[in-house]
Design a protein around this nucleic acid. Structure first.
Length: 410
DNA sequence: TCTGGGGTCCTAGGACCC
DNA sequence: TCTGGGGTCCTAGGACCC
Protein backbone atom coordinates (compact mmCIF):
# COMPACT_ATOMS: atom_id res chain seq x y z
CA UNK A 1 0.00 0.00 0.00
CA UNK A 2 1.52 3.28 -1.09
CA UNK A 3 -0.38 5.18 1.58
CA UNK A 4 1.75 3.51 4.30
CA UNK A 5 5.06 3.99 2.53
CA UNK A 6 7.36 6.93 3.30
CA UNK A 7 6.59 9.48 0.58
CA UNK A 8 6.60 12.81 2.41
CA UNK A 9 9.81 14.74 2.07
CA UNK A 10 10.96 17.67 4.21
CA UNK A 11 13.58 19.68 2.37
CA UNK A 12 15.60 22.06 4.51
CA UNK A 13 18.33 24.40 3.27
CA UNK A 14 21.47 24.07 5.42
CA UNK A 15 22.42 27.30 7.22
CA UNK A 16 20.50 29.01 4.43
CA UNK A 17 21.27 32.68 5.10
CA UNK A 18 24.96 31.89 5.63
CA UNK A 19 25.07 29.82 2.42
CA UNK A 20 23.60 32.70 0.40
CA UNK A 21 26.04 35.21 1.92
CA UNK A 22 28.90 32.88 0.98
CA UNK A 23 27.62 32.61 -2.58
CA UNK A 24 27.73 36.40 -2.86
CA UNK A 25 31.03 36.73 -1.00
CA UNK A 26 33.19 33.59 -1.39
CA UNK A 27 35.80 34.98 1.04
CA UNK A 28 33.36 33.91 3.76
CA UNK A 29 33.74 30.23 2.82
CA UNK A 30 35.13 28.13 5.65
CA UNK A 31 35.06 31.11 8.03
CA UNK A 32 32.95 31.49 11.19
CA UNK A 33 29.97 33.59 10.00
CA UNK A 34 27.10 35.08 11.99
CA UNK A 35 24.18 36.67 10.13
CA UNK A 36 22.59 39.27 12.40
CA UNK A 37 23.00 42.84 13.57
CA UNK A 38 26.37 44.06 14.83
CA UNK A 39 27.83 42.89 18.17
CA UNK A 40 27.10 45.40 20.90
CA UNK A 41 23.64 46.04 19.52
CA UNK A 42 20.54 44.67 21.22
CA UNK A 43 19.76 41.66 19.12
CA UNK A 44 20.21 37.95 18.59
CA UNK A 45 21.86 35.61 16.11
CA UNK A 46 19.57 35.13 13.10
CA UNK A 47 21.71 32.43 11.47
CA UNK A 48 25.22 31.07 11.92
CA UNK A 49 27.68 28.75 10.20
CA UNK A 50 28.78 25.34 11.49
CA UNK A 51 32.22 26.83 12.29
CA UNK A 52 30.51 29.16 14.78
CA UNK A 53 28.25 26.45 16.16
CA UNK A 54 31.35 24.53 17.16
CA UNK A 55 31.90 27.24 19.79
CA UNK A 56 28.37 26.79 21.15
CA UNK A 57 26.74 29.67 19.28
CA UNK A 58 23.10 29.05 18.35
CA UNK A 59 20.49 31.06 16.51
CA UNK A 60 18.41 33.08 18.95
CA UNK A 61 21.43 33.71 21.19
CA UNK A 62 22.19 37.31 22.17
CA UNK A 63 24.87 38.98 20.06
CA UNK A 64 26.93 39.83 23.11
CA UNK A 65 27.04 36.18 24.17
CA UNK A 66 27.79 35.02 20.62
CA UNK A 67 30.66 37.49 20.30
CA UNK A 68 32.12 36.21 23.57
CA UNK A 69 31.94 32.57 22.48
CA UNK A 70 33.27 33.05 18.95
CA UNK A 71 35.78 35.89 19.09
CA UNK A 72 36.84 35.59 15.44
CA UNK A 73 33.29 35.47 14.07
CA UNK A 74 32.46 37.66 11.08
CA UNK A 75 29.14 39.50 11.55
CA UNK A 76 27.14 39.97 8.35
CA UNK A 77 23.91 42.01 8.18
CA UNK A 78 20.63 40.23 7.34
CA UNK A 79 19.30 40.69 3.78
CA UNK A 80 15.83 39.15 3.69
CA UNK A 81 15.05 40.25 0.16
CA UNK A 82 18.08 38.42 -1.23
CA UNK A 83 17.26 35.21 0.65
CA UNK A 84 13.63 35.34 -0.48
CA UNK A 85 14.80 35.47 -4.09
CA UNK A 86 16.98 32.36 -3.68
CA UNK A 87 14.17 30.57 -1.80
CA UNK A 88 11.90 31.18 -4.77
CA UNK A 89 14.44 29.61 -7.10
CA UNK A 90 14.77 26.56 -4.84
CA UNK A 91 10.97 26.12 -4.97
CA UNK A 92 11.06 26.22 -8.76
CA UNK A 93 13.55 23.36 -8.78
CA UNK A 94 11.51 21.35 -6.26
CA UNK A 95 8.34 21.74 -8.31
CA UNK A 96 10.10 20.06 -11.25
CA UNK A 97 10.27 16.89 -9.13
CA UNK A 98 6.73 16.80 -7.75
CA UNK A 99 3.61 18.87 -8.33
CA UNK A 100 2.85 18.91 -4.61
CA UNK A 101 5.20 21.35 -2.90
CA UNK A 102 4.19 23.11 0.29
CA UNK A 103 6.22 26.02 1.59
CA UNK A 104 6.71 25.92 5.37
CA UNK A 105 9.15 28.80 5.79
CA UNK A 106 11.83 30.64 3.86
CA UNK A 107 14.29 27.73 4.19
CA UNK A 108 11.98 24.73 4.48
CA UNK A 109 9.37 23.00 2.33
CA UNK A 110 7.44 19.75 2.19
CA UNK A 111 7.15 17.71 -0.98
CA UNK A 112 4.71 14.85 -1.49
CA UNK A 113 6.04 12.09 -3.75
CA UNK A 114 3.01 9.80 -3.42
CA UNK A 115 2.17 8.45 -6.87
CA UNK A 116 5.55 9.46 -8.32
CA UNK A 117 7.30 6.11 -7.73
CA UNK A 118 6.62 4.68 -11.17
CA UNK A 119 7.66 7.92 -12.83
CA UNK A 120 11.18 7.77 -11.40
CA UNK A 121 11.70 4.02 -11.13
CA UNK A 122 14.85 2.54 -12.75
CA UNK A 123 15.95 -1.08 -13.11
CA UNK A 124 18.65 -0.56 -10.45
CA UNK A 125 16.20 0.43 -7.70
CA UNK A 126 15.73 -2.32 -5.11
CA UNK A 127 12.23 -1.13 -4.23
CA UNK A 128 9.95 1.90 -4.28
CA UNK A 129 11.64 3.38 -1.17
CA UNK A 130 14.97 3.28 -2.98
CA UNK A 131 13.39 5.04 -5.95
CA UNK A 132 12.15 7.92 -3.79
CA UNK A 133 15.40 8.21 -1.87
CA UNK A 134 17.40 8.38 -5.10
CA UNK A 135 14.99 10.96 -6.52
CA UNK A 136 15.33 13.17 -3.45
CA UNK A 137 19.12 12.92 -3.71
CA UNK A 138 18.82 14.08 -7.31
CA UNK A 139 16.75 17.03 -6.09
CA UNK A 140 19.32 18.13 -3.49
CA UNK A 141 22.05 17.69 -6.11
CA UNK A 142 20.12 19.92 -8.53
CA UNK A 143 19.85 22.62 -5.87
CA UNK A 144 23.57 22.36 -5.17
CA UNK A 145 24.60 22.38 -8.86
CA UNK A 146 22.19 25.01 -10.15
CA UNK A 147 22.22 27.43 -7.21
CA UNK A 148 25.24 26.41 -5.15
CA UNK A 149 23.15 25.85 -2.04
CA UNK A 150 23.53 22.81 0.25
CA UNK A 151 20.33 21.21 1.56
CA UNK A 152 19.19 18.20 3.57
CA UNK A 153 16.08 16.09 3.27
CA UNK A 154 14.09 13.66 5.37
CA UNK A 155 11.58 11.21 3.92
CA UNK A 156 8.99 9.52 6.10
CA UNK A 157 5.37 8.52 6.47
CA UNK A 158 4.36 11.70 8.27
CA UNK A 159 5.16 15.38 8.04
CA UNK A 160 6.45 15.61 11.58
CA UNK A 161 8.76 12.59 11.18
CA UNK A 162 10.02 13.84 7.81
CA UNK A 163 11.05 17.03 9.55
CA UNK A 164 12.85 15.13 12.29
CA UNK A 165 14.56 12.99 9.63
CA UNK A 166 15.78 16.06 7.73
CA UNK A 167 17.41 17.21 10.97
CA UNK A 168 19.12 13.81 11.29
CA UNK A 169 20.34 14.08 7.69
CA UNK A 170 22.20 17.37 8.22
CA UNK A 171 24.52 18.50 6.84
CA UNK A 172 23.88 17.90 3.16
CA UNK A 173 22.36 14.43 3.54
CA UNK A 174 19.18 12.49 2.82
CA UNK A 175 17.53 10.24 5.38
CA UNK A 176 14.63 7.91 4.64
CA UNK A 177 12.77 6.32 7.54
CA UNK A 178 11.19 3.08 6.37
CA UNK A 179 7.64 2.20 7.31
CA UNK A 180 7.65 0.29 10.59
CA UNK A 181 10.97 1.84 11.62
CA UNK A 182 9.51 5.10 12.94
CA UNK A 183 9.38 4.38 16.68
CA UNK A 184 12.88 2.88 16.69
CA UNK A 185 14.40 5.93 14.98
CA UNK A 186 12.65 8.38 17.29
CA UNK A 187 13.15 6.55 20.60
CA UNK A 188 16.72 7.69 21.48
CA UNK A 189 16.16 11.35 20.49
CA UNK A 190 15.70 14.10 23.11
CA UNK A 191 12.06 15.20 23.46
CA UNK A 192 12.95 18.66 22.14
CA UNK A 193 13.57 17.18 18.68
CA UNK A 194 9.84 16.63 18.15
CA UNK A 195 8.17 19.57 16.40
CA UNK A 196 5.79 21.18 18.89
CA UNK A 197 7.94 20.53 21.94
CA UNK A 198 9.51 23.85 22.86
CA UNK A 199 11.51 24.99 25.88
CA UNK A 200 8.49 25.12 28.19
CA UNK A 201 7.20 21.62 27.38
CA UNK A 202 10.76 20.31 27.53
CA UNK A 203 11.21 21.64 31.07
CA UNK A 204 7.90 20.13 32.22
CA UNK A 205 8.74 16.77 30.65
CA UNK A 206 12.17 16.75 32.31
CA UNK A 207 10.45 17.42 35.62
CA UNK A 208 8.46 14.22 35.02
CA UNK A 209 11.69 12.36 34.30
CA UNK A 210 10.94 12.15 30.58
CA UNK A 211 14.06 12.87 28.53
CA UNK A 212 13.69 10.92 25.28
CA UNK A 213 10.95 10.40 22.72
CA UNK A 214 11.04 6.69 23.59
CA UNK A 215 10.14 7.54 27.20
CA UNK A 216 7.52 9.99 25.98
CA UNK A 217 5.95 7.30 23.78
CA UNK A 218 5.71 4.96 26.82
CA UNK A 219 4.13 7.58 29.10
CA UNK A 220 0.41 7.05 29.77
CA UNK A 221 -1.65 9.65 27.94
CA UNK A 222 -3.32 11.13 31.08
CA UNK A 223 0.14 12.06 32.47
CA UNK A 224 0.83 14.11 29.35
CA UNK A 225 -2.41 16.09 29.52
CA UNK A 226 -0.95 18.21 32.33
CA UNK A 227 1.89 19.29 30.04
CA UNK A 228 0.18 19.56 26.68
CA UNK A 229 -3.52 19.88 27.45
CA UNK A 230 -5.64 19.15 24.40
CA UNK A 231 -2.48 18.60 22.35
CA UNK A 232 -1.36 15.60 24.46
CA UNK A 233 -2.65 12.95 22.09
CA UNK A 234 -1.15 14.66 19.07
CA UNK A 235 2.28 14.87 20.72
CA UNK A 236 2.07 11.31 22.06
CA UNK A 237 1.29 10.01 18.58
CA UNK A 238 4.12 12.10 17.15
CA UNK A 239 6.57 10.50 19.56
CA UNK A 240 5.55 7.11 18.16
CA UNK A 241 6.06 8.26 14.60
CA UNK A 242 2.35 8.42 13.91
CA UNK A 243 0.91 11.40 12.15
CA UNK A 244 -1.01 12.56 9.16
CA UNK A 245 0.14 11.04 5.90
CA UNK A 246 -1.25 13.99 3.98
CA UNK A 247 0.46 17.34 3.77
CA UNK A 248 -2.49 19.19 5.18
CA UNK A 249 -3.56 22.68 4.35
CA UNK A 250 -1.09 25.08 2.83
CA UNK A 251 -0.37 28.37 4.51
CA UNK A 252 -0.06 30.87 1.70
CA UNK A 253 1.25 34.24 2.79
CA UNK A 254 -0.91 35.90 0.20
CA UNK A 255 -4.41 34.63 -0.36
CA UNK A 256 -6.02 34.55 -3.77
CA UNK A 257 -8.08 37.68 -4.40
CA UNK A 258 -11.54 37.52 -2.87
CA UNK A 259 -12.88 41.05 -2.51
CA UNK A 260 -14.55 41.66 0.81
CA UNK A 261 -13.67 38.16 2.01
CA UNK A 262 -11.67 37.19 5.06
CA UNK A 263 -7.99 36.65 4.65
CA UNK A 264 -5.59 34.73 6.79
CA UNK A 265 -2.91 36.12 8.96
CA UNK A 266 -1.70 39.33 10.46
CA UNK A 267 0.69 42.17 9.74
CA UNK A 268 2.96 43.24 12.53
CA UNK A 269 6.00 45.37 13.23
CA UNK A 270 7.77 45.69 16.53
CA UNK A 271 10.90 47.47 17.64
CA UNK A 272 13.21 47.02 20.59
CA UNK A 273 14.78 50.36 21.52
CA UNK A 274 18.56 50.57 21.50
CA UNK A 275 18.25 51.74 25.08
CA UNK A 276 15.22 51.62 27.33
CA UNK A 277 13.09 54.71 26.81
CA UNK A 278 11.38 56.78 29.47
CA UNK A 279 10.78 59.84 27.31
CA UNK A 280 7.14 59.94 26.22
CA UNK A 281 7.87 61.83 22.98
CA UNK A 282 10.21 59.06 21.77
CA UNK A 283 7.59 56.38 22.50
CA UNK A 284 4.86 58.26 20.66
CA UNK A 285 7.14 58.90 17.67
CA UNK A 286 7.89 55.17 17.53
CA UNK A 287 4.18 54.33 17.70
CA UNK A 288 3.47 56.73 14.87
CA UNK A 289 6.17 55.21 12.71
CA UNK A 290 5.01 51.63 13.48
CA UNK A 291 1.44 52.62 12.63
CA UNK A 292 2.50 54.05 9.26
CA UNK A 293 4.55 50.95 8.53
CA UNK A 294 1.84 48.36 9.19
CA UNK A 295 -0.75 50.42 7.31
CA UNK A 296 1.59 50.80 4.35
CA UNK A 297 2.07 47.01 4.30
CA UNK A 298 -1.69 46.44 4.56
CA UNK A 299 -2.34 48.70 1.57
CA UNK A 300 0.38 46.94 -0.37
CA UNK A 301 -1.39 43.63 0.33
CA UNK A 302 -4.73 45.28 -0.39
CA UNK A 303 -6.24 44.28 2.92
CA UNK A 304 -8.21 46.05 5.61
CA UNK A 305 -7.80 45.25 9.30
CA UNK A 306 -10.55 45.10 11.90
CA UNK A 307 -8.32 44.41 14.89
CA UNK A 308 -5.41 46.55 16.05
CA UNK A 309 -3.11 45.23 18.79
CA UNK A 310 -0.45 47.08 20.69
CA UNK A 311 2.42 45.33 22.43
CA UNK A 312 4.46 47.02 25.09
CA UNK A 313 7.44 45.63 26.95
CA UNK A 314 8.81 47.28 30.07
CA UNK A 315 12.48 47.40 31.00
CA UNK A 316 11.89 44.47 33.39
CA UNK A 317 10.52 42.44 30.46
CA UNK A 318 6.92 42.45 31.57
CA UNK A 319 4.97 42.37 28.32
CA UNK A 320 1.47 43.79 27.97
CA UNK A 321 -0.86 43.68 25.00
CA UNK A 322 -4.03 45.65 24.38
CA UNK A 323 -6.23 45.25 21.35
CA UNK A 324 -9.44 46.56 19.96
CA UNK A 325 -11.76 45.68 17.10
CA UNK A 326 -13.37 48.32 14.92
CA UNK A 327 -14.52 49.05 11.40
CA UNK A 328 -12.07 47.81 8.74
CA UNK A 329 -9.27 50.23 7.88
CA UNK A 330 -5.75 50.46 6.53
CA UNK A 331 -5.26 54.16 7.14
CA UNK A 332 -2.80 55.43 9.74
CA UNK A 333 -4.85 58.62 9.92
CA UNK A 334 -7.78 56.57 11.20
CA UNK A 335 -5.81 54.06 13.24
CA UNK A 336 -3.27 56.26 15.00
CA UNK A 337 -5.82 57.76 17.45
CA UNK A 338 -6.93 54.20 18.27
CA UNK A 339 -3.33 53.16 18.81
CA UNK A 340 -2.80 56.12 21.15
CA UNK A 341 -5.80 55.00 23.18
CA UNK A 342 -4.45 51.43 23.41
CA UNK A 343 -1.10 52.87 24.49
CA UNK A 344 -2.67 54.90 27.31
CA UNK A 345 -4.47 51.78 28.52
CA UNK A 346 -1.34 49.63 28.43
CA UNK A 347 1.15 52.13 29.84
CA UNK A 348 0.24 51.91 33.51
CA UNK A 349 3.68 51.58 35.14
CA UNK A 350 6.27 54.38 35.43
CA UNK A 351 9.05 52.04 34.23
CA UNK A 352 11.06 52.78 31.04
CA UNK A 353 10.04 50.89 27.89
CA UNK A 354 12.08 48.28 26.10
CA UNK A 355 9.83 47.53 23.13
CA UNK A 356 6.77 48.73 21.28
CA UNK A 357 4.89 46.76 18.64
CA UNK A 358 1.75 46.99 16.54
CA UNK A 359 -0.20 44.27 14.77
CA UNK A 360 -3.12 44.33 12.36
CA UNK A 361 -5.29 41.23 12.23
CA UNK A 362 -8.83 40.14 11.39
CA UNK A 363 -7.92 41.03 7.83
CA UNK A 364 -10.27 41.20 4.90
CA UNK A 365 -9.41 41.81 1.29
CA UNK A 366 -10.09 45.40 0.32
CA UNK A 367 -13.31 45.29 -1.70
CA UNK A 368 -16.15 47.82 -1.65
CA UNK A 369 -15.19 48.82 1.90
CA UNK A 370 -12.26 50.69 0.43
CA UNK A 371 -14.72 53.50 -0.24
CA UNK A 372 -15.34 53.84 3.48
CA UNK A 373 -12.17 55.83 3.81
CA UNK A 374 -12.16 57.21 0.28
CA UNK A 375 -11.43 60.62 1.75
CA UNK A 376 -7.90 59.47 2.54
CA UNK A 377 -7.53 57.33 -0.54
CA UNK A 378 -5.83 59.77 -2.87
CA UNK A 379 -3.48 60.89 -0.10
CA UNK A 380 -2.43 57.30 0.64
CA UNK A 381 -2.05 56.57 -3.06
CA UNK A 382 0.31 59.49 -3.53
CA UNK A 383 2.34 58.67 -0.44
CA UNK A 384 2.61 54.99 -1.34
CA UNK A 385 3.67 55.78 -4.89
CA UNK A 386 6.43 58.13 -3.70
CA UNK A 387 7.59 55.44 -1.29
CA UNK A 388 7.68 52.73 -3.97
CA UNK A 389 9.80 55.02 -6.10
CA UNK A 390 12.11 56.77 -3.62
CA UNK A 391 12.12 54.40 -0.65
CA UNK A 392 9.96 54.06 2.43
CA UNK A 393 11.58 56.89 4.40
CA UNK A 394 11.07 59.47 1.65
CA UNK A 395 7.65 60.31 3.13
CA UNK A 396 6.89 60.22 6.84
CA UNK A 397 4.28 61.69 9.14
CA UNK A 398 5.69 64.64 11.09
CA UNK A 399 6.04 62.54 14.22
CA UNK A 400 7.94 59.78 12.43
CA UNK A 401 10.07 62.37 10.72
CA UNK A 402 11.34 63.77 14.01
CA UNK A 403 12.23 60.22 15.04
CA UNK A 404 14.12 59.59 11.82
CA UNK A 405 16.07 62.84 12.14
CA UNK A 406 16.97 62.04 15.72
CA UNK A 407 18.23 58.62 14.64
CA UNK A 408 20.36 60.22 11.90
CA UNK A 409 22.00 62.65 14.27
CA UNK A 410 23.09 59.79 16.54
C1' DT B 1 19.79 31.62 29.04
C1' DC B 2 19.66 38.77 30.39
C1' DT B 3 16.44 37.41 25.97
C1' DG B 4 14.96 40.10 17.90
C1' DG B 5 11.26 40.14 14.73
C1' DG B 6 8.02 38.03 11.76
C1' DG B 7 4.45 34.96 12.12
C1' DT B 8 0.66 30.93 13.66
C1' DC B 9 -2.19 28.64 16.80
C1' DC B 10 -4.33 27.62 21.33
C1' DT B 11 -6.68 28.67 25.72
C1' DA B 12 -9.64 30.78 28.88
C1' DG B 13 -12.89 34.05 30.53
C1' DG B 14 -16.51 37.31 29.68
C1' DA B 15 -20.19 39.46 26.91
C1' DC B 16 -24.01 38.71 24.31
C1' DC B 17 -27.64 36.25 21.83
C1' DC B 18 -31.07 32.69 21.22
C1' DT C 1 -36.73 37.49 38.00
C1' DC C 2 -34.01 33.43 37.89
C1' DT C 3 -32.28 29.74 35.30
C1' DG C 4 -29.72 26.26 31.36
C1' DG C 5 -26.88 25.46 27.63
C1' DG C 6 -24.84 26.30 23.18
C1' DG C 7 -22.72 29.33 19.91
C1' DT C 8 -19.99 33.19 18.61
C1' DC C 9 -17.15 37.10 19.15
C1' DC C 10 -13.75 39.71 21.62
C1' DT C 11 -9.66 40.25 24.51
C1' DA C 12 -5.25 38.92 26.82
C1' DG C 13 -1.69 35.98 27.30
C1' DG C 14 1.39 32.38 26.05
C1' DA C 15 3.81 28.47 23.42
C1' DC C 16 6.00 27.57 19.43
C1' DC C 17 8.39 28.02 14.78
C1' DC C 18 12.05 29.93 11.74
Amino acid sequence: MTSHAPRLCCLDLDTFFVSVERLLDPTLLGKPVIVSGQPGERGVVTACSYEVRAFGVRSGMSLTKAAQLARDAIFVPVRHGVYADYARRVRCIASRYSPVVQVASIDEMFIDFAGCEELYRTADDRDADATIERTVRALTTSIQCELGLPSSAGIATSRSLAKVASGLAKPAGVRLVRAGDEARVLAPLPVRKLPGVGPVAERKLHALGIETLGQLACTPLPCLRGVFGAWAKHVWRGARGLGSEALGRDRPAFQEHDPGGETQGSISNERTFREDVSDERTSLDMLCSLCERVCFRARKRQVLARTVSLKLRYADFQTISRSTTLKPSCSELELYPVVLDLYRRARTRPLPLRLLGLALSNLSTAGPQLELFAGYQSLHDSVDRIRQRFGYDSVLLASSRSRALAAQSR
